[in-house]
Design a protein around this nucleic acid. Sequence first.
DNA 1: GGGCTTGTTTGATCTGACGCAAACTGGGAG
DNA 2: CTCCCAGTTTGCGTCAGATCAAACAAGCCC
Lengths: 232, 232
Amino acid sequence: MPNLDKSLVADLPMFAGVEPDDLNDILREAQSIRYQKGASVFQQDEEAHSFFILLHGHLRVMKVTPDGQQVVVRYVTPGEIFGIAMAMGRGTYPATALAVVDSLALVWPSAAWPRLVAKHPSLAVNTIQTVGSRLQDAHTRVVEMSTEQVERRVAHALLRLAKQAGRKGEDGIRIDFPISRQDVAEMTGTTLHTVSRILSAWEDQGLVESGRQRISIRDPHKLFILAERPSG
Amino acid sequence: MPNLDKSLVADLPMFAGVEPDDLNDILREAQSIRYQKGASVFQQDEEAHSFFILLHGHLRVMKVTPDGQQVVVRYVTPGEIFGIAMAMGRGTYPATALAVVDSLALVWPSAAWPRLVAKHPSLAVNTIQTVGSRLQDAHTRVVEMSTEQVERRVAHALLRLAKQAGRKGEDGIRIDFPISRQDVAEMTGTTLHTVSRILSAWEDQGLVESGRQRISIRDPHKLFILAERPSG
DNA sequence: GGGCTTGTTTGATCTGACGCAAACTGGGAG
DNA sequence: CTCCCAGTTTGCGTCAGATCAAACAAGCCC
């Protein structure tokens, strides 16, 4: 993995507790690959040949049902490890990852994983924490889907997006990659029509400002109230 | 951990690749504790003082929302590790675990985890796989909640219960612990009323046979068809 | 810059499932 | 054996949100 600023990578949670020398050893086996906007990084059910760390850009991870419906599992933000299907004991990827903007990732062959983990036990510990926190997120989402109605689910989704990919601008916190009504619908288990109606209503109230594949949160606090309040 | 048949424990997936001597080392730090039906093993938001392996019985793991609604996260079956909040980097349990029948578990202090993992790297590898497979399950559930309507969600839930806690009887596959309509509702994000209606209909069609806190699947194949078919 | 594609808005209608309410029943406690 | 309670069944009215349908707009390509 030539010509890459290691100081950035060294601070990632995945490499916490890893000595600089060991880090070099780990990075030596990786290559960096660019993905153009719209390109797929890996496909659902494809053999899990590699695992990755995102350096730049944003990915959408989604699952497709047998009858063609899509569900957005999550968005990957820089610094995150992803595609670790092999480490989780699977032979294939459980979902598809797509670059929503031009992106750059470190890529290791899955075959390197057992060796790396054996040599650098911190990796295993950090991976447990990473996967564990994703499990929490997934459970949170199950709880939301079970108990909240659509408007609040959308509010929660937007707040989450703002936290992990929000960029402060003059019109509030803007989600830093193109995202459509359809995408939000696939994150919250509803339809683009309903999302559109909700965003229109929020726009009238001055809560958000949005357009074609673009959402900014003007009033995060009010949105938060709306997300938490049983019926507000 | 005195007087326990180690041969049973040795075959658990969590201890795959662990040498017998090492296993003794691990088990030495555990104690076994009994939980009466209805007793809580740990509580949501409580400090994560211990982690566990279930030896006998069944636990219901659930989350409670701020406004008091419950969601069943999963049922724990014998052989499974649970309560590993600490390993996942959390200080408190994210959910409550309740014994639905008299149960028996091995219990380790959470403080022992780092030491055990450091000494027996297989534990970390196995834990990643365990947590990973739970993450898959959770994502599957999110997809179901997003794309399927209630009847199919209930069908999937029952099939899953049958697979992990089914006991063959004369009236089909019976779920091996007391489970109410309310419980099924909390697993599928619906109400006990709707579950009751669905089960009644299925009973008329000879798909299931059920009663007070008791469900048997008479015709798993037809139920499976119903669960998978877009509109059957 | 004109046309086309892709995403968005908004209206009208329909319905699955929820909420409420009330009756019913299995099985344990005394 | 009877009472009682928790769990279950079932009917009915209602509504959040899906579905269907159509017009509309922002970019992008040529």
